[in-house]
Simulated assay, not measured.
Amino acid sequence: MEALKDYLPHSVEGKNILITGGTTGIGRATALLLARLGANVMITGLDEQHLKDALKDLYKEAKGEVYDVIADLSTEEGVNATFRTADSHFDKLDILINNAALPAGKVENGSYSEWQRVINTNLLAYTACTAQALERMKGDGHIVNIGSMSADVREETGSIYVATKSGIQGFSEALRKEVNKSGIKVTLIEPGAVDTDMQDQPTQEKKEKVENLEMLTADDIAISVLYCLSQPKRCDVVELKVRPHLQII
């Protein structure tokens, strides 16, 4: 077996990585982990205070370069602004982690404009950012799409959210067939319940669920992302489902 040092610790060192929705939750945890390992990380966010909080930690711990942009990825201009900023810092893009997402409930609730913003953020932005990233991956790169167990469970309480995550699942499968001959890897990660702002529950309740093995932490998914990025060129982690131990699905 190849030495372990050839895998995890050095796999992202010096890589140029863009993480959408990198100011909170899974995106923030992933940005912190990869920055600690020497990656050059750029994060996007919507909320300026969340961005400042994330950058404070990133600047403190990063071994590589750290960049940021405030952008609404539900719009074409937000996507374009993100990649204009990326171009000002990176000569190429090695890794795109599509993570930015909004919660959504039943189709019986909400309005057209609300559904449109969710679908644009959760699905269209993934495709638009991927298209832009592929232009900047010169024959070698990795697209990681953060999906959700909702694509399989299809809970009745979140039909709009389910629609977006099911779309990401299908997009990821087809995308891999489209780009793998170009040397681009595609990975879909589908977490179960995770202690993030997406979970509309009191903080203490979520902490108790983590302790009771009913909920994951954002760090758990960050480590999963690192595992997928750390495989040798010959090895693709195509789909990774990560569930809390006591979340039986």
Rank of each mutant, 00 (worst) to 15 (best):
L46N: 12
L246M: 14
G14D: 10
A218D: 13
Q199M: 13
R136A: 07
P244Q: 06
R36V: 07
L96Q: 10
N16E: 09
F90N: 08
T44H: 01
I17E: 01
D53S: 09
T203S: 12
T44M: 02
L175G: 00
N16D: 11
E114I: 05
D72Q: 09
E65W: 03
D68W: 11
A218H: 08
E77D: 13
P244G: 07
G25W: 04
G22F: 09
S182V: 01
Q204K: 15
E48T: 08
E178D: 15
D152Y: 15
R136M: 08
I17W: 00
L34E: 04
G139L: 10
F171V: 04
E190S: 15
L188S: 05
K15W: 06
L37F: 11
G78P: 03
C129Q: 01
G167W: 02
Y161P: 01
L124R: 03
E61Y: 14
E13A: 15
V12C: 12
E155G: 15
S166D: 14
I146E: 11
A163F: 12
I95F: 04
Q49E: 13
R176H: 10
L4N: 09
A222T: 04
G45E: 04
E48L: 09
S166L: 14
S111W: 03
M42S: 06
A104L: 11
S182C: 10
Y59N: 14
G27K: 05
I119V: 09
A131D: 10
K181C: 02
I168P: 00
L216M: 11
V179Y: 07
N122V: 02
A29E: 10
E135N: 12
S224G: 15
E76P: 00
V225S: 06
A100K: 10
V66W: 12
V179T: 06
N122A: 01
S224M: 09
V210A: 04
F90W: 08
I249D: 14
P232V: 00
G45V: 04
V41T: 10
K209V: 01
D72E: 12
I189A: 05
A81C: 00
V238G: 00
I221E: 06
D152P: 00
L246N: 15
G22T: 09
A222P: 01
M42D: 03
L229V: 08
D200E: 12
S74K: 05
K209Y: 07
A54C: 06
Y67S: 13
L240M: 13
L32K: 11
E65K: 15
D220P: 03
N98W: 00
S11C: 11
A125G: 08
D220L: 08
E178T: 14
G141M: 05
E155F: 11
K185E: 01
I119M: 03
K15S: 12
A31S: 14
D220M: 10
F83T: 04
E77C: 01
G105I: 09
D140T: 05
T121V: 02
F90V: 06
L34F: 04
I143D: 02
T30S: 11
T196V: 09
V69K: 07
G147S: 11
G105R: 11
D87K: 15
D94Q: 09
K60Y: 01
